[in-house]
Write a protein that binds this DNA or RNA. Structure first.
Length: 543
RNA sequence: GCACCCGUAGCUCAGCUGGAUAGAGCGUUGGCUUGCGGAGCCAAAGGUCAUAGGUUCAAAUCCUGUCGGGUGUACCA
């Protein structure tokens, strides 16, 4: 369509201009463009005259049933029925076809409890992976976890005290209490190390132990907790509806390749100072940072570079790599990416960090437990209670749907203010509203014996819904280009509202136009389901 | 100090590669069930888009200053 208008303008004024179509208020038309306003100045003419001339010529096009000029010089276009139907069947573009893309879809650390922030990042990564796949890419989901370092030292300090030389003691802790238990162990170690210098020294020593793992007692505990952590992580990821990963990277694997890469690129990329390897990130919008400490151990920068190296080895064809992380690491990642690109030139322009905001709870009362982290199991229970309070069945797909939607409907980057009572209310712009809207539609289809048929006719009462349906591919294009799932959410909500209006006014089963209307409802239901599935949200036919 | 991000309705947020009366949900107020799931629909009230300038035919959107908030700033990740 843009091209049609572009040609039209060219034949009138022999100028080239980028034509952008927007979706105006429905009262104005299906599409609108302001090209006339842009052209007027350079042509030295009145914008309305220019618009009128273009409109006049566009009226010859049989796809447009109505073309008019409004306001200062907008051209509003209404599509013919057949053109509108064609738009509804339009598929989203696949600009990333044949690209191999690696994306981290979760990265909670073992030896620490999994909390609401991890759930957010995991849901976001998983959904972005879906968007990449929709745009045609061959997506490889991976994960990365810190299995060594300070946090391990802190937890191990408490665990050694707790087990008193007998790792078997851990087996007494029931599975459903392990996450909180780990939280307690970690918190205790952190606090003790902060308050007491000697404890801090012990914790540091245990952190070192995590790299070498020579001690039998240490190892026995380490292995049990490691196993617990990943059992827990896998179970939660499954509950929130994430697609399983293909490869799990551990921080301990990255030390060797990371250090090697850095040393090989000194002094070309890194500078050596007092035994430490430094990257001058301040030249690249980051900050100067030490990658290998003077003690010779790789620091987090070295590990992230090692990870880049491992990914490249595992996926030699990779054309892009995405790592969603908390926004507080944005500047740091700028440095890692700059250093990686300098060290491995073939990766230039292929590494991306997606900085996300923090998850905060708006209400004071949130959980009965200690500390300030919100554990995911607790949140699941809260959702379940709310759903049951409304007489619904609290299955994981309903809970996960509500949770995912709550996170995905806001733009990436800002903090997510998570209001539990709002998320749990299940009305308004929520995942539950959409699942309910889908189930209603599905029930209509089930109730009717009419078969789906592609109709060439449209009736007046169909128009609003059809118009909304025709926007689907455009919204998906926007979302996949920007990797912004919230566009999908906003659209689906509008769509469901449009359907509910239709449903309210028009009888489907038993009407003279039953077959026609059932087909329209089917079109809608399919698109809603496809949209939800991009968000990783199930759409049951009945709830 | 320096760098980056943010400030839109009572609350939570869209809109920001400039364009038509600034949109939604929640909350508030008032309506709608004999027709397919009322977890729904309709309507009303509610905004000097932090603030002061600038650019433009046109600014929530671009530029600058100010105020307010957040994050980062070399051996923890």
């Amino acid at each position: 369509m843009e091209q049609q208008i572009k040609n039209c303008i060219h034949s009138l004024f022999t100028t080239e201009i980028e034509v952008k179509l927007t979706r105006p208020e429905p009262q104005f038309g299906d599409y609108a463009t302001n090209v006339a306003l842009q052209l007027a100045a350079s042509l030295g003419k009145n914008p309305r005259e220019v618009a009128e001339a273009i409109a006049e010529k566009l009226r010859d096009d049989e796809d447009f049933i109505d073309v008019n000029v409004a306001g200062p010089g907008f051209i509003n276009i209404r599509l013919s029925d057949s053109a509108l139907i064609k738009q509804v069947y339009e598929r989203p573009e696949t600009l990333r076809k044949d690209e191999l893309i690696v994306i981290e879809t979760n990265n909670p650390n073992p030896f620490k409890p999994m909390h609401i922030g991890h759930a957010y990042n995991s849901i976001l990564g998983d959904t972005i992976a879906n968007l990449l796949a929709v745009s045609g890419a061959n997506v490889k989901r991976v994960s990365y976890h810190g299995d060594v370092g300070t946090h391990v030292g802190r937890s191990m300090w408490s665990l050694l005290k707790y087990t008193e030389g007998n790792p078997e003691k851990l087996t007494n802790i029931p599975a459903n209490e392990r996450n909180s238990f780990m939280g307690k162990m970690y918190a205790e170690g952190s606090r003790a190390a902060k308050e007491d210098e000697t404890v801090k020294a012990e914790v540091d020593e245990l952190a070192k132990q995590s790299f070498i793992r020579k001690d039998g007692n240490f190892n026995a505990i380490y292995e049990i907790i490691f196993d617990w952590s990943f059992t827990q992580i896998d179970a939660i990821l499954k509950r929130i509806g994430n697609v399983p990963i293909e490869r799990r990277y551990l921080e301990s694997e990255t030390e060797v390749p990371g250090k090697e890469l850095i040393i090989d690129n000194t002094p070309r990329v890194f500078t050596l100072s007092n035994g430490a390897y430094i990257f001058e990130g301040s030249k690249y919008g980051s900050f100067d940072n030490i990658y290998i400490g003077s003690h010779g151990n790789g620091l987090y920068g070295a590990h992230d570079m090692g990870l880049v190296q491992l990914k490249r080895q595992d996926y030699p064809q990779l054309s892009a790599s995405y790592v969603p992380t908390g926004g507080e690491q944005a500047a740091y990642f700028k440095g890692v990416i700059a250093a990686s690109e300098l060290a491995i030139p073939e990766l230039e322009g292929k590494l991306f960090n997606i900085p996300t905001g923090l998850v905060k709870l708006s209400s004071g009362k949130m959980s009965s437990r200690t500390g300030d982290v919100v554990e995911i199991d607790w949140l699941f229970d809260e959702f379940a209670k709310a759903i049951e309070a409304r007489g619904g069945e609290a299955t994981d797909e309903i809970i996960a749907g509500a949770l995912r939607y709550q996170f995905l409907k806001v733009k990436i980057g800002g903090d997510v203010i998570f209001d539990v009572s709002e998320a749990v209310s299940l009305s308004g712009n929520t995942g539950s509203y959409l699942q309910y809207a889908y189930a209603r539609a599905r029930q209509l289809i089930e109730k009717s014996t009419a078969k789906f048929m592609r109709s060439n006719d449209l009736y007046e009462e169909d128009k609003s819904l059809m118009r909304k349906l025709s926007e689907y591919h455009e919204v998906v294009n926007l979302a996949t280009r920007e990797l912004a799932p919230h566009h999908i959410c906003n659209y689906l909500f509008d769509l469901a509202q449009e359907f509910n209006r239709y449903y309210e006014k028009n009888r489907v089963v038993g009407d003279d136009r039953e077959a026609h209307r059932v087909s329209l409802v089917t079109l809608y239901a399919d698109i809603l389901k496809a949209g939800l599935s991009m968000l990783g949200i199930e759409a049951p036919g009945k709830i």
